[in-house]
Computed example of a mutant assay.
Amino acid sequence: MSAETLTWLNQNTLIGFTGKRGTAWHYRASQQGDEPNHYPGPIPVDDVKRRLFHWEPIEGSIETTYLTGDGVTRLTDPDRKAIIRPDTGSVLGVFKQGFRIHEYKRWLVDHIETILDDDLSIGSAGLLKGGAVAWVQVEIPETCTTPEGVAFRPFLSGATSLDGSLSSTYQTGAQLIVCDNTLSAALATSNAKRVKIKHSRRSLDHVVDVRDALGIIHQIADGFAAEVQRLCQVDVSRKDWTAFLDKHTPVPAEHGRKRTMAENKRHALHHLWTYDRRVRPWQGTAFGVVQAVNTFTHHEQTVRGAVRAERNMHRMVTGGVDDLDLGTLQTLEAVLNRPLLSKAG
């Protein structure tokens, strides 16, 4: 990763509660005169507004110029508009007139601020893609630890975009301390809590849905811990693990690039399962299988077209984490020939 990318991450992401979970993987010590982006405790709301959301997006017209035999011709498209970041002059997106800006301070701070109290605080916030995407994550101050030794922090994240890549999305999850992974809060169910609001003229009609979603974070910890316990009680033998790899990452018969990639992925997964401290404590269980696949996807899988932090954040707020963990358990369910998934959310 380039120094420029690391600089961007450290200047445009704020990481809280580092006294409890350690520094982010992209952390660099601040230079003299720089304001550090890591906070031992919660991130103050005012810092999120001042350091990240100090600018307001504005709308601009869409114009073009072209040459004809008669000279220069200028056209304006009345049906479209540009979304501009005024402090940098960047055009973040071009849309039809019906697109509605969801301002970061309003949709990611003001809505979330209504539920902050002594038991809920901002744990992370950031901008990605030049400010075209933003998120704020709310956490409880204390780390939860299950009897099986899984230390985690339940959270609710809010994210939105100015480039059309993301609806305003509010998503629950659990952050594992040992590996800085994000797991589905509804680990073994298909009923993860998620609210999406499109950038349309009727956006404000759905604000009550947002407030209902934000109110559930206190319910996450007990449900996640119960699912971890249940999955840790499901035995996965060496034979089962090999059969899982065969289904999850089959090796093509033909020699070539695809076969090499599959073999490398299987080797990486098996190394995590056998030796890595982020997975090995739960080796031989269904939870260990979920943890192996999740850790590989977050930290080792090749990332194309984006930096890893951006890809992981996008997976978290769009529900990709839920799909990842659910898919892992569905594959394992087929291998073990026993039900692992619960329909109850």
Rank of each mutant, 00 (worst) to 15 (best):
K129D: 14
E4A: 12
L127F: 13
V317H: 01
W241L: 02
D110F: 05
R80Y: 14
H218V: 10
F152W: 07
R278A: 05
E139H: 02
G320R: 09
Q97W: 13
T302V: 07
A213Q: 04
G131T: 03
R308S: 00
S124H: 09
A151N: 04
A213S: 07
D209F: 15
P44T: 00
L75D: 07
G69M: 11
M316A: 05
L272W: 07
Q11R: 10
N294T: 15
M1R: 14
Y170D: 04
T7H: 14
S61I: 13
L14G: 01
H199R: 07
V45R: 05
L127G: 06
D276Q: 04
L204W: 09
K198A: 15
Q301V: 15
S157D: 13
G22F: 04
T7V: 03
K343N: 07
N191V: 11
S168N: 02
F53W: 05
A186E: 00
N264W: 09
D87G: 10
G126R: 01
T65M: 15
Q229M: 04
N181I: 05
S190E: 14
N312F: 00
T285S: 03
D118E: 15
N294Y: 15
I216P: 13
A186R: 10
M313F: 08
E113I: 01
V109I: 08
H26D: 10
L329D: 12
V290G: 15
C232L: 00
G158D: 05
Y170W: 02
T242H: 09
R80K: 12
D325I: 11
D46I: 04
D118N: 07
Q31D: 12
L127M: 00
K129Q: 12
W273D: 03
S237C: 10
L75C: 13
D163A: 13
A253D: 14
K49G: 08
D163W: 02
V178N: 14
V136T: 07
L329W: 06
A174V: 00
W8H: 14
I101E: 02
H298T: 01
Q229L: 12
Q32R: 12
A151Y: 00
C232H: 13
A186H: 02
P281E: 01
R280V: 01
G16A: 03
V317A: 03
S161F: 03
L204R: 08
V289R: 01
G149Y: 00
M313E: 07
R259D: 13
A344R: 12
H26N: 09
L183Q: 05
L14R: 13
G123C: 11
R50F: 12
H26F: 00
Q175L: 11
R153A: 06
M261T: 10
R153E: 09
P57A: 10
L67G: 13
G16K: 02
Q11N: 07
T260G: 11
P40S: 00
G256K: 03
I216N: 12
K247C: 09
V251E: 05
R74P: 10
H248L: 09
A24H: 01
Q171V: 10
I84H: 08
V45C: 14
L116K: 08
P250W: 04
W135F: 13
